[in-house]
């Protein structure tokens, strides 16, 4: 069994409602220059940012440390011309193969809150650094593990489905309707998995681009069914941001967060997971 699913399986009944770090205050996204391409060796450029409005650069750049570009045959290729500015990161991808690519920024982080000598402290890092950086005798230690994944799919030529195989960590989207074959007025069906297992009862939020030029957010919300599936009928063409996040009581598979009482990363931290994907819906 994978460590992450072991953590879930061992999660005991909630003893204490933990004050968890608040959900990400800004929306994380990538925006590709195109999602459907023809011709030989087409290129795309992708922006990666966190912002309030979609899709505007109004907060900060996303880091590209955990960027993975998976090609239609399952191999990975490096990003070309990466750069990070104040408001956005950008990189280019050459689609040398026909088929569907998945571009992911998948971050795993640990968050700790504790008291030391009567002073409350916060710490953020990865599991490997937890033990070294959070004192073993920390009091009131609360540890939260988060998996945050931001993705886009792009297709050169005919769509393929190799990249839909989930990696089994955190929240992931498993498209049923191909994400590069979305058209206004049509209904798409997709599935969410958490640590590779169907994620039921999740609230899916979908927001169309161009927030700056309208007063109402016009978000679409829906809920995943027993098998983690949901449907959405696209009202208009455009770029859409689709987001799901779970944590605390909403974490499927457990009654709620537990809390690690030591700085041992193996000891069941509370968990959070989020997933965002940018989907392009074409006009008929």
């Amino acid at each position: 069994m994978k460590p992450s699913s072991a953590i879930l399986a061992l999660t005991p009944i909630l003893l204490l409602v933990t004050a968890l770090p608040t959900a990400e205050a800004h929306r994380a996204w990538m925006l590709p220059s195109s999602t459907v391409l023809s011709g030989e060796d087409p290129w795309i450029t992708v922006d990666a940012a966190r912002s309030n409005d979609l899709f505007y650069f109004d907060h900060n750049a996303s880091r590209l440390d955990n960027l993975t570009i998976t090609t239609p045959d399952g191999s990975t290729v490096p990003a070309q011309n990466p750069r990070t500015g104040k408001f956005r990161s950008s990189f280019d991808v050459k689609l040398a193969m026909n088929g569907t690519y998945r571009i992911s920024i998948a971050d795993e982080s640990m968050f700790a809150r504790y008291t030391e000598n009567g002073e409350s402290k916060r710490w953020r890092g990865n599991a490997a650094r937890l033990q070294a950086e959070v004192p073993a005798d920390a009091q009131n230690l609360q540890v939260t593990q988060s998996h945050n994944r931001v993705e886009v799919f792009v297709t050169a030529g005919a769509p393929t489905e190799t990249v839909f195989k989930p990696e089994g960590q955190g929240l992931e989207l498993v498209p049923i309707t191909h994400p590069n074959d979305l058209f206004a007025g049509e209904t798409a069906r997709m599935r969410f998995v958490l640590d590779g297992a169907p994620a039921a009862g999740l609230t899916v939020t979908i927001i169309r681009e161009g927030i700056r030029y309208r007063d109402a957010l016009q978000e679409i919300t829906t809920t995943t069914g027993e098998n983690g599936e949901f449907e959405v009928t696209w009202p208009y063409p455009g770029m859409y941001w689709l987001n799901v996040s779970v944590g605390g009581r909403g974490m499927p598979g457990g009654a709620g967060p537990s809390q690690a009482s030591t700085n041992d990363p193996q000891e069941r931290p509370a968990r959070r997971a989020s997933y965002s994907v940018t989907l392009e819906v074409l006009p008929q």
Partner: peptide, 21 residues
């Protein structure tokens, strides 16, 4: 270099139904 194929996707219904294959 067959560069004209770059814009075939703009015939988007045809591209979806037939072109991409």
């Amino acid at each position: 270099n067959n560069e004209g194929t770059e814009w075939l996707k703009d015939l988007r219904q045809w591209w979806r139904r037939l072109g991409r294959e």
